[in-house]
Design a protein around this nucleic acid. Structure first.
Length: 851
RNA sequence: GGAUCUGUAGCUCAGUUGGUUAGAGCGCACGCUUCACACGCGUGAGGUCGAUGGUUCGAGUCCAUUCAGAUCCA
C-alpha cells in the first residue's frame, strides 16, 4: 500500500511547487538539510514528520507549498566519514592521480591508509555523499514526506558554492565580513580554528598547582593555576582591583619562577578573588579570559603553543637568563600534556611547589567533535560580524528574533540568551579540505609576502571559484606564489557559513529572482533546539546583513528523542534505534502518528506503544470505511453545499455532524497555531466515539431495518462524516487516508481541500443528542456486564432514568438504541431536580445463562 | 552564577482565557471468536494535580517561596 501510494503521489506531481503562484498563495518551508554522512536516526523521522504534517495541512488549505530538502554534505563530518569508509587520508602536497581507486576494504591500521591528493579526496567525498543521500531520500520517501524532490540542493554543489561565495563577497564589500589576525580557539587534533558556536564545555578533573613569583624585595607571591605549562608565556599577574591582599602589589613587577621573566602585576575586575589564591597568571593564551585581559590591558603576545599543540621548539627570546633558557629547553617540542608534567617536575625539584596539588573539576572548552581541550593560538582568520563585538548590532539581532514567531514561544529565550552571551564575531574560515573555498586571493609584494589588508575578490559572475586552482582576476596562473604575483586563500568556509544560506540557496537567490521573491522570507523554519545557536542564529545574521530582513516569519522547534528510559539516544550508549525497524514493523502512518502526537519543543521518548496506537487508528480507519462502503455509501451521499440536507432526518445523525463541525473548527484552529498534536487528538477522540458509539447505534438502520428514509439518512451521514474524517487525518496518516480516498473518490486526498465548517452549514442539530444516547448505550452495556451476561443477550425490558432533556434526546433515537442493545422494551423516565446520571433499573434479560 | 522547560492514574501524556464530580491511551482486572475490525470489542478499578503559603466566591490553571529532574547560556 505504501510504496504504491508513494509512486502515485510522485506520478501525480502532488508535491510539485508551482512557480506561477503569487507570494500570498505560497507557503515556503526552509527545512534543515540533514548531514547525509551522519547516521540515520529515529530523531530524523520524528522532526521531519512534524514538518511534513504542517506542509500537508497547508497544502490542503490551498497554499502552494514550497517544500525543498537539501543535503548538508560539506565539512568535517563528511571528511571523517570518507576517511573511515575508504581508509584514506588527504595530503594536500600529493599530486592528483586521475586513475586512483580506493582500497576495497579500509586498512585496519590507520598508518596503512592511503595518502591521497586533495582533489582525489574531494572526489571520494562527492561519491560517498551521493550514496549516503540516496539512503536518506529512500527513508524520507518511505516515511511519506511530501517534499518536492525536484528542488533538492547539496551544500557543496555549484549553486550552493555560488550562493555562499556571493553572500561572502557582498558581506566583505559591505563591511560585514573581514579578516584579522587574532587569538583564536584552535583544535589541535583537526588543526583548524573553531567558532564559539561549536564549543562544548565539558567537566574535566584538574588541579591547582601553587608556586611563587617573587617581588622586588624577594617576597613570594603565590599563584594557583591549573596550567603550569603556560608559565613561560606569562605576561602579567592579575588581581581584582578591590582585593585588599594584592592592592599594594598592583603597579609593581614580579619575576616568574624557573624562567626569570619580569612581569607586571595588574588589576582587572574579571579576576576572581575566590578562585585559587585570588591572583592569576595571564598567559598568551590559556583561555578566552586571557584574551580579554591581553586586549584590555594592552599586553604583549608571548605565544609558546603552536598549531600542532606542542610547545615551540625554539627558546623564546623573552626568556633571557641561562637558567630560564635551560629550563625552557627541557620543555621545547613537548605536547601540552607532557610539558605540564615537565614543569611540575621542575617546580618540585627546585623546591618551588608550595602545596600539594588541589584537585578540582572544572569546565573546559572542547570542539564539539574533538576530544582534546582547545588551545588558543593567534592566526589570521575571516570573520562575519554577528554582534559579538558590537552592542548595537547585537540589539538589532535580538530585535530580529522578536520578528519571528517561535513555536513554542519559550524557545526564543534560548536565542536571546545566546545572542547576549556572544563574545566575539563569527569565525568562518576553516583549515580543512572538503568545503566551500573562501573566494579571495592576496597580492604578493616584491618579497612574495602576502598583503592581507588588500584581498582580491572575484567578480560575482565568475562564481563559483576555487582560488587554489584559479588565478586571481588580473593575474596569470604563472604568477601564483611569485613576488609581485598572488596567492590563493587556502581555507574553506565553516559549514554554517553555507548552511546559514539555505533560504537563499533553496530560493534561487540571484539566479531566479522571480522564484526568490515568491518564497523569501520563508514562512517556516523547522529545526531542533540544539541548533538554535548555530543554524538558526547564523541564518538570521546573514538575512540581516544581506537582505535587511528576517529569513523566515515562523520557526517550529522540535524536541529531542529520548530512549524509553528518558536517556538521550546515542551510539555510545547502544540505545539507538534504526529507523527502518519501526517503519517495517508498524508502518509509516504509525510512526508518523507517534511523531505527530508530540508537541513542538517537547523532548519525547521513543515509544513503541504510541506507534501501536497509530497503527490501530489507521487500521480502524480502513475498517470503518469498509463498513460504510458495505452499507452502500458512495460519493453521491456526501452532503455538500448545494445538496439536499433534508435527507438527514434523524436527530442522532444530525447530532453527529454537528459535533463533527465543531471538531473541524477546533482542529483547524490548532493547526493554525502549529499545534498539530492537539488537532490530531481532537479528531481522534471524535473518531473513536464515531466508531464505538455512533456506528454501533446505527447499524440496524444502515441494514435497512427501519425503512428507506431512515437508511438514507444514515448513508448520507456516514458518507459526509467519512469525507471530513479522511481529510482531517490526511496530514498525519497520509497512506491510510489516501488508500480509502481512492476507493470512492477521484484523485488523492492530498490534493483535496481541508474541510471547512461551512460545508456542514446545511445540517442543523445538537451534539448533545449523541452524548445522551451514547451515555444510554454505555449504561445498558454496563448493566449487562454487571449482570455477567454477554453483550448480545436480549433485554426483555429495562427502565432508563435521567434528566428530562437527556431523556428527550434518548427518545429521539430510541429505535437505534433498542437495536444496538437488543432491547425489546426500554422505558424512559425523567427524574426531577439537580442533574443526575443516566441510571438503568428493572433490567429483565431474556436468558438466564451467564456469560 | 544567569535563563528556560518539566513535575497530573503503575507508565506515556492532554488539560486553551481560573468555573460543575480532573481526562485519554497503554498497562491491569473481569467479560466477549457480536454479520467493518481478535492488528478486534465491551465493562471496571486506579489520582489529596511535587510541597508550602497567597490572590479569589472559586486554583491542576494566577502569584510567591520551596523541592526534584532536564536543557540552554556564562
Amino acid at each position: 500500500m505504501e510504496s504504491k501510494l508513494s509512486a502515485a503521489w510522485s506520478q501525480e506531481q502532488i508535491f510539485h511547487f508551482d512557480d506561477n503562484a503569487t507570494r500570498d498563495e505560497v507557503y515556503s518551508i526552509d527545512t534543515p538539510p540533514p548531514t547525509a554522512s551522519g547516521s540515520l536516526h529515529v530523531g530524523h523521522m520524528f522532526s521531519y514528520t512534524q514538518t511534513d504534517v504542517v506542509a500537508r495541512y497547508k497544502r490542503m488549505r490551498g497554499k502552494e507549498v514550497f517544500y525543498p530538502l537539501g543535503w548538508d554534505d560539506n565539512g568535517l563530518p563528511t571528511e571523517r566519514r570518507v576517511q573511515n569508509y575508504y581508509g584514506v587520508r588527504c595530503d594536500p602536497a600529493k599530486p592528483y592521480d586521475p586513475h586512483y581507486a580506493p582500497p576495497e576494504k579500509p586498512a585496519k591500521n590507520q598508518r596503512d591508509w592511503d595518502m591521497i591528493s586533495r582533489r582525489n579526496f574531494i572526489e571520494l567525498c562527492e561519491t560517498l555523499t551521493v550514496k549516503d543521500e540516496k539512503v536518506f531520500e529512500d527513508l524520507f520517501t518511505t516515511l511519506g514526506l511530501s517534499v518536492d524532490w525536484r528542488q533538492t540542493y547539496r551544500t557543496i554543489d555549484d549553486h550552493s558554492r555560488t550562493v555562499s561565495q556571493r553572500a561572502f563577497v557582498r558581506d566583505v564589500r559591505s563591511g560585514n565580513a573581514y579578516t584579522a589576525e587574532a587569538p583564536t580557539l584552535w583544535d589541535v587534533t583537526f588543526r583548524t580554528a573553531v567558532a564559539q558556536a561549536e564549543l562544548e564545555a565539558k567537566e574535566r578533573p584538574s588541579a591547582y598547582y601553587r608556586y611563587p613569583f617573587k617581588d622586588s624585595a624577594g617576597k613570594e607571591v603565590i599563584i594557583a593555576t591549573t596550567r603550569p605549562e603556560l608559565l613561560p608565556s606569562c605576561v602579567a599577574l592579575v588581581a581584582h582591583p578591590e582585593d585588599e591582599r594584592y592592592q599594594q602589589l598592583v603597579g609593581s613587577t614580579v619575576t616568574s619562577p624557573l624562567f626569570d621573566v619580569e612581569v607586571p602585576v595588574l588589576a582587572h575586575p574579571l579576576a576572581d578573588p575566590e578562585k585559587g589564591s585570588g591572583i592569576a597568571m595571564i598567559c598568551t593564551f590559556g583561555d578566552m579570559t586571557d584574551v580579554t585581559w591581553w586586549r584590555e590591558l594592552n599586553l604583549p603576545t608571548r605565544a609558546v603553543i603552536g598549531r600542532d599543540g606542542r610547545l615551540s621548539g625554539d627558546t623564546p627570546q623573552w626568556i633571557t637568563t641561562p637558567q630560564g633558557r635551560d629550563h625552557y629547553q627541557q620543555l621545547a617540542g613537548k605536547t601540552v600534556h607532557s610539558a605540564k608534567e615537565a614543569v611540575i617536575d621542575l617546580l618540585q625539584t627546585s623546591g618551588l611547589m608550595r602545596a600539594e596539588p588541589e584537585k578540582i573539576t572544572h569546565a573546559v572548552h572542547f570542539y564539539e567533535k574533538g576530544d582534546k581541550p582547545l588551545e588558543v593560538v593567534t592566526s589570521r582568520q575571516w570573520y562575519i560580524r554577528n554582534g559579538g563585538r558590537d552592542a548595537e548590532r547585537r540589539e538589532q539581532l535580538v530585535e530580529r528574533g522578536r520578528k519571528i514567531t517561535w513555536n513554542p514561544s519559550f524557545m526564543r529565550s534560548r536565542y536571546e540568551n545566546w545572542v547576549e552571551g556572544l563574545n566575539g564575531d563569527w569565525l568562518i574560515s576553516r583549515q580543512r579540505f572538503f568545503g566551500v573555498p573562501i573566494p579571495v586571493w592576496y597580492p604578493l609584494n616584491s618579497a612574495a609576502e602576502p598583503d592581507y589588508d588588500h584581498p582580491i575578490l572575484p567578480a560575482e559572475d565568475q562564481l563559483p571559484v576555487d582560488p587554489a586552482s584559479e588565478p586571481a582576476p588580473g593575474f596569470a596562473e604563472s604568477q601564483r606564489g611569485e613576488s609581485g604575483g598572488f596567492m590563493g586563500e587556502p581555507d574553506v568556509f565553516d559549514t554554517w557559513a553555507t548552511s546559514s544560506l539555505t533560504p537563499q540557496i533553496a530560493g534561487q537567490w540571484e539566479r531566479d529572482s522571480d522564484r526568490f521573491q515568491r518564497v523569501f522570507p520563508f514562512d517556516l523554519r523547522p529545526q531542533g533546539h540544539d541548533i538554535i545557536r548555530t543554524w538558526l542564529f547564523s541564518s538570521v545574521v546573514r538575512a540581516n546583513s544581506l537582505h535587511d530582513t528576517v529569513p523566515w516569519t515562523n520557526t517550529a522547534i522540535s524536541g529531542w528523542i529520548l530512549d524509553p528510559d528518558r536517556k538521550k539516544m546515542s551510539k555510545s550508549k547502544g540505545n539507538v534505534v534504526i529507523p527502518n525497524e519501526p517503519l517495517e514493523q508498524f508502518g509509516a502512518d504509525a510512526v508518523r502518528y507517534w511523531a505527530a502526537s508530540a508537541k513542538l519543543g517537547a523532548d519525547t521518548a521513543y515509544e513503541i506503544s504510541q506507534m501501536k496506537i497509530g497503527r490501530r487508528l489507521a487500521i480502524k480507519l480502513l475498517n470503518a470505511s469498509k463498513f460504510a462502503f458495505g452499507m452502500g455509501v458512495t460519493e453521491e451521499h456526501v452532503i455538500a453545499p448545494g445538496s439536499d440536507p433534508t435527507i438527514i432526518t434523524e436527530p442522532l445523525d444530525q447530532a453527529l455532524l454537528a459535533k463533527l463541525r465543531s471538531v473541524i473548527e477546533q482542529a483547524t484552529e490548532h493547526f493554525d497555531n502549529y499545534d498539530y498534536a492537539r488537532a490530531l487528538s481532537v479528531s481522534e477522540s471524535f473518531f473513536w466515539s464515531f466508531t464505538d458509539d455512533y456506528v454501533e447505534l446505527v447499524k440496524d438502520r444502515a441494514y435497512g431495518a427501519q425503512g428507506e428514509p431512515a437508511q438514507a439518512s444514515v448513508r448520507a451521514t456516514l458518507a459526509t462524516a467519512l469525507d471530513k474524517l479522511l481529510r482531517l487525518f490526511a496530514p498525519v496518516l497520509p497512506f491510510a487516508t489516501d488508500e480509502v480516498w481512492r476507493w470512492w473518490r477521484h484523485g488523492s486526498v492530498h490534493a483535496a481541500s481541508w474541510p471547512e465548517p461551512s460545508e456542514l452549514d446545511a445540517v442543523a442539530g445538537s451534539p448533545a443528542v449523541l452524548d445522551a444516547v451514547a451515555a444510554g448505550l454505555t449504561s445498558l452495556r454496563r448493566a449487562k456486564a454487571e449482570a455477567n451476561v454477554k453483550q448480545r443477550t436480549e433485554i426483555l425490558s429495562a427502565r432508563i432514568s435521567g434528566p428530562q432533556q437527556e431523556m428527550d434526546s434518548v427518545r429521539s433515537a430510541l429505535q437505534d438504541l433498542q437495536a444496538a442493545t437488543k432491547s425489546q422494551v426500554l422505558e424512559l423516565e425523567s427524574t426531577e431536580g439537580a442533574p443526575q446520571e443516566i441510571v438503568v433499573s428493572e433490567l429483565a434479560l431474556a436468558e438466564a445463562a451467564t456469560a
